[in-house]
Amino acid sequence: MSGVRKWTWGAAGALAGVVLGAGAAVAAPAAGLEADLAFHGTVVMNGDRVEVKLTPHNDGPSALPDATVRLRWSVALAEEQRLPARCVREDERTVLCGTGALATNGVGEQLDVPVWLKEKPSEVTVEIDTAWGGGATDQDRTNDRTKVLVLDTGDAYAF
């Protein structure tokens, strides 16, 4: 499978710089750079598999070269995962994914993030928020943080 990595969460530290980008560790927010990030999509749970499909939005006023979205589950993920190339494991319940470039008043590329849970709960909560905003200031953080309760029904829950 092209673009998919198989690894365990112990490798997250080595790969985190890839997701966050070189600028995340060294760049201070540029003077006047502002962006209003939001994430919309769906979450589906089938047994011990959860799939998040999300699309990043940037309502500006500045374009961003990249940003990072954090997906955190209320339960532990299985040790081994097959994550998209832009995603890395942060810890036992968290995945970070790069959004790619986001134009002003633009919509980014959809991210499809399937994960396996350690156990088979009847429900799970997924928290979605901005881990890194491309060095920009976001004056309205209320629309880039959300929690979704997902039941093991196979139904898509929208956010």
Rank of each mutant, 00 (worst) to 15 (best):
N46S: 15
G47R: 15
D48R: 10
R49K: 14
R49I: 03
V50M: 07
V50S: 01
E51A: 09
E51I: 07
K53S: 12
K53P: 07
L54A: 04
P56K: 04
P56D: 08
H57Q: 14
D59N: 14
P61R: 12
P61D: 15
P61G: 13
S62N: 15
S62A: 14
D66E: 14
A67H: 10
T68M: 11
V69H: 06
V69D: 06
R70D: 04
R70H: 11
R72N: 11
R72W: 01
W73A: 05
E79N: 06
E80D: 10
E80L: 03
Q81W: 05
Q81V: 04
R82K: 13
R82Y: 03
L83N: 04
L83W: 08
P84S: 07
A85K: 03
V88L: 04
R89E: 00
E90M: 13
T94H: 02
T94F: 03
V95Y: 01
C97A: 12
C97D: 06
T99I: 06
T99N: 10
G100T: 07
G100S: 11
A101D: 11
A103S: 15
A103Q: 15
N105C: 13
N105D: 15
G108R: 08
Q110M: 14
L111F: 08
D112S: 14
D112E: 14
V113N: 02
P114A: 11
P114T: 10
V115N: 07
W116K: 11
W116I: 00
W116V: 01
L117K: 00
E119K: 12
K120V: 09
E123K: 10
V126Q: 00
V126F: 03
V126K: 00
I128N: 04
I128T: 11
D129L: 05
T130H: 01
W132A: 05
W132H: 01
G135H: 01
G135I: 00
A136H: 07
